[in-house]
């Protein structure tokens, strides 16, 4: 478990890296297969995979001279916490807004 979640969020804060995660959600893939599906170069794909790997989001298996990448689902679990927290917070602030509007109408500020 990372002490700090920022590397995880940083790793995911890129459209191509999110797309790679989305592809690996369905199946394990080689660099070449990922590059082809995203229509970006292999060096570019390798670079993005390296960021995901360093953040612990993907694992790699080397078969002969091919590198096959798989998603490390466990690493994404902390995101659930932030998601549920954010949802709760957002819903609460919606109710606060409703309450404030009501208070203003009643002139009880």
């Amino acid at each position: 478990m990372e002490e700090n979640l920022s590397p995880l969020f940083h790793a995911l804060a890129d459209p191509n890296r999110l797309r790679i995660i989305d592809l690996l959600r369905h199946e394990d893939l080689t660099v070449g297969a990922i590059a082809e599906r995203l229509d970006i170069s292999q060096p570019q794909t390798s670079k993005q995979l390296r960021v995901l790997y360093d953040a612990g989001l993907v694992s790699v298996t080397i078969e002969a001279n091919r590198r096959r990448y798989a998603l490390n689902r466990q690493a994404l679990k902390p995101l659930d916490v932030w998601r549920s927290r954010l949802e709760a917070e957002t819903a609460r602030l919606d109710r606060l807004e409703e309450f404030l509007n009501q208070s203003k109408r009643e002139g009880t500020s």
Partner: peptide, 10 residues
């Protein structure tokens, strides 16, 4: 939905 949410956040 996690990824969608995350995408929205970032």
């Amino acid at each position: 939905s996690q990824l969608e949410r995350l995408d929205a956040i970032v």
